[in-house]
């Protein structure tokens, strides 16, 4: 990567300041441009997305777009743990399932409003995130990956077997649609257009939350942990606290996506939360570039949108993705839009 390795011993940051653009690659620079888009540009883009249901008539296309949005929320949540904090989590579907089942059970059994089940699901997700985060924080990358994989599988097994709560493999059907407003002015959210606006607002909320957290003290602490745990600890970053926070934040976003999934499908069953689901979610930020928000969005479009376009070849999607992951890690470990991390630049 860098030929002047000896110079790095004294001042690593100076070596890169000059050729930043070339070092980070064209795609990353493009992503940077996108992020610094002028205010008017952002508003115009927002208007385009808001008018999308008016322009697209096909229900099928709307459904695909809604799914892309859903996976953006999921992948953003995972991106917090993987991209910002540098911890592997291959069990994100567990949090997704938590949100979906919480909403399904509370709405179906207790007749609660959707808007109350969302924070309830997110809270439960946070509890679960802390429960898995705390005991595994001392583990290194590969161990963490295995444990989260096992954890995701446990949640799936519980959802499949706890007949009293989840009705097992039969799933929970006929989940009612959410309403916006009260009494006589209640608008049911039951059309594709309405669901699109709902998930779009979730996406905006997620992007906003991620950017704000990333730029806060917490986000800086996460970045420090990602770059070098030991140095971060020496600098006074409380590793246990911040890693747990990262897991909790990620879990809350996963549960948010789950709540939407439950009302959108009107049906939840354990089959939606298998390991394959976690694997699909994990590939999105990896393709887009770990830690990059525009990258995650593009990743979701590639992973969810492209297989719909190339319907005939969709069987090969996971094969291509698997091969792509290997090649990406060898040739471009920072992903399509990601910035090179400190580790990647200075270690060998």
């Amino acid at each position: 990567m860098n030929k002047t390795r000896l110079d790095d011993l004294s001042g690593g940051s100076q070596a890169t300041s000059g050729d930043n653009f070339l070092q980070q690659g064209v795609m990353a620079a493009l992503a940077g441009r996108l992020a610094r888009f002028s205010g008017i540009g952002k508003i115009a883009l927002l208007c385009v997305f808001l008018m999308l249901p008016l322009m697209i008539q096909s229900n099928y296309a709307m459904r695909v777009i809604i799914y892309i949005c859903l996976y953006i929320v999921l992948a953003m949540g995972l991106n917090v743990v993987m991209g910002f904090t540098g911890l592997l989590n291959i069990g994100h579907a567990a949090f997704y399932a938590t949100g979906a089942y919480t909403t399904a059970i509370l709405m179906k059994q207790f007749g609660m409003s959707f808007w109350l089940t969302v924070p309830a699901g997110m809270t439960l997700g946070v509890v679960l995130g802390v429960a898995i985060g705390l005991p595994t924080l001392r583990l290194r990358d590969d161990y963490l990956a295995m444990v989260t994989l096992g954890f995701g599988q446990i949640v799936y097994i519980v959802a499949n077997n706890w007949m009293g709560l989840t009705r097992g493999p039969r799933g929970i059907a006929d989940i009612p649609s959410p309403f916006l407003g009260w009494g006589d002015w209640a608008i049911p959210i039951d059309s594709y257009t309405a669901f699109y606006y709902l998930i779009f607002s979730f996406v905006l909320f997620t992007i906003f939350a991620c950017i704000r957290v990333r730029d806060s003290r917490v986000g800086l602490a996460w970045t420090a942990i990602r770059e070098d745990e030991d140095v971060a600890a020496v600098m006074g970053v409380n590793l246990v606290l911040y890693k747990t926070m990262s897991f909790a934040f990620s879990a809350a976003l996963g549960a948010l996506a789950g709540s939407f999934f439950a009302v959108f499908q009107h049906f939840v069953s354990p089959n939606s939360f298998t390991i394959l689901e976690s694997v699909i979610i994990i590939t999105i930020p990896i393709i887009g570039g770990l830690g990059s928000i525009p990258g995650t969005i593009v990743g979701a479009v590639i992973m969810i949108g492209l297989p719909e376009i190339f319907r005939a070849a969709s069987e090969y999607r996971m094969v291509v993705v698997g091969a792509f992951m290997v090649l990406m890690m060898i040739f471009k470990p920072e992903g399509l839009f990601g910035k090179k991390q400190f580790q990647q630049m200075y270690k060998a």
Partner: peptide, 11 residues
């Protein structure tokens, strides 16, 4: 970095 290897083998 170990992270990259884990992802590659997962792939």
């Amino acid at each position: 970095p170990r992270f990259a290897v884990v992802i590659s083998v997962l792939g």
